[in-house]
Each structure stands twice: as C-alpha cells, then as structure tokens.
C-alpha cells in the first residue's frame, strides 16, 4: 500500500475542557485534490485546517504529509486567511515577493521571476505597485493566493478566503482558483460555509457534524460533476441536485437548534 499524500490519523483536539474533535478523526487526501470542509459554525473546521498548517498541534493522533508527521509551520503548507491576508505596508508585488523571503534556495533573480509569474497568473501584474488598501477585497485575496503559490506551497490551506466578498467577485475568484489549482497542480483544503461554493470548487466535500466534530459525509463531487468547472455548471440540474443533497446533509448535521 502506498502512503497517502496527506493523512489525518486518529486526530483529536481539545482546548482545555472543550472537545473540538472528540472521536479520533481519520481522512486521507490525494495529491492535487481540492478538498472542501463544510460544517456548522464552531464545529472545528478551522482548527483541523490549522493543525495541517502546523499552527495548532493535535491532542492525539497525527497529521502526515507524504508519511512525515507535520511539525511546525513551513512554506510547503501555505495559509490564506479571510482577513488580514496581506501586509498593508508592502505593495502588491512586495507582498508576493515576501512569500519567498525566507527561501535561501532561490536567487534574487529567481525570486523576481517567480513574483512576476504569479502576479501575472492571478491577473495583478498591473497593480504591482499598489498598496493593498488601494485595491479591492477580491484582489487582496488574490495577492494572498499569489504569495502562497510563489512561496512554493504544495498544500493551500484556505479558511473562508472569499467570505467577505460580494457574490460576483466570489464567483469569479472561484473559477480562477479552480483553474489555478488544476494548472499548478496544488492540493487545496478549503473551509467555507457556502454550500454552493463547496460543491462548485471541490473534488471532495467533507461534511462535519456540530462540535465535537465528526465526519458526517464524504462526497465525491468530481465523480458526479467531472473535474472541469465552467461557470455554466452552476445552472445545470446535476449541480443543483448535488447542492441540494449537500445542503440537506448539512442541515441534519447542524441539528434542530440552528
């Protein structure tokens, strides 16, 4: 049996007396898969993702990347947060360059080339010299994505990255992100509350129960909708059906009190 790319193995997490992940949590994620975590508010999605990033440590069990238990954070696993996702004192281009600041294996020239490549990829080249507070919220999230890619992250950990954006920007970024992930072959773990976003983006949607988090469903979206996700997919009956199915699961997971 080959080692899975990313594996949660019997992971539990408590904060003091608070059981966030009670039962040991197991999940394996294949390389280049787009995984979406969906679940009621406060169930522990962020906590699970932070543990992959090395920003929190599991109370029990471990998380392994290519068989190696995850220790502290490093550039192979990059984070994109919902807010404060880029540094306001650096320009767009400087933010992307900052992604490689602590990489000693790249020359300055290579770093600049990568910066320009990823700025171009997320369509921000012409905004290189703008400060983040002068560009839209959607662009700020693209800055963060470009920075993480430029850093050389293989796993992108995204915690509601589009949560603060309006519907149109969100859709546009979803299409872009899915495209980048497919082209650049990255593994993505993405947390959201938005069922439609989850189904549109994911290869697999993982639905959690309310806290203590337990896996309720593991839905193979690609098997049902295919890997290509053009915007029109949203209007198709298959998409609609799957979306409703996931929504129902989520309602059951959240219980009656919500």
């Amino acid at each position: 049996m080959t080692e899975p790319y990313l594996a949660f193995d019997g992971v539990t997490k408590r904060f003091g007396a608070l059981d966030v992940v009670g039962q040991p949590f197991d999940l394996t994620i294949a390389r280049n898969d787009f995984i979406v975590f969906l679940g009621p508010s406060g169930c522990g999605k962020t906590t699970l993702m932070r543990m992959v990033g090395g920003l929190d440590t599991p109370t029990g069990g471990d998380i392994r990347l290519e068989g190696v238990p995850v220790g502290g954070p490093d550039h192979r696993r990059g984070m994109v947060f919902q807010s404060y996702s880029s540094f306001p004192w650096l320009t767009v281009a400087e933010n992307v360059l900052f992604g490689m600041r602590y990489r000693t294996d790249l020359t300055e020239q290579q770093k600049r080339a990568r910066r320009d490549h990823y700025l171009d990829l997320v369509g921000l080249y012409e905004f290189s010299d703008a400060y983040p507070n002068k560009v839209s919220g959607g662009m700020r999230q693209r800055v963060a994505i470009a920075r993480t890619l430029a850093a050389g992250s293989e796993v992108l950990l995204m915690d509601e990255p589009f949560g603060a954006l309006d519907a149109q920007r969100r859709e546009k970024l979803q299409v872009e992100l899915r495209g980048i992930q497919r082209r650049d072959t990255k593994t993505v773990v993405f947390v959201t509350h938005d069922v439609e976003e989850a189904v549109f983006l994911a290869d697999r949607v993982i639905v959690f129960s309310k806290r203590p988090a337990r896996l309720v469903a593991d839905i193979d979206v690609t098997a049902q909708l295919g890997a290509e996700r053009p915007l029109e997919l949203r209007d198709s009956p298959e998409f609609f059906r799957l979306r409703n199915g996931v929504l129902k699961l989520l309602r059951e997971a959240a219980g009656d009190d919500e």
Partner: peptide
C-alpha cells in the same frame, strides 16, 4: 494572521 502568515512562509 500576520504572525501566522510569516510562520507558514518559513520565518523564525
């Protein structure tokens, strides 16, 4: 977030 971004980029 700023602090954690830096850590995930490999900063000490």
């Amino acid at each position: 977030e700023y602090v954690e971004i830096a850590y995930t980029l490999g900063a000490r």
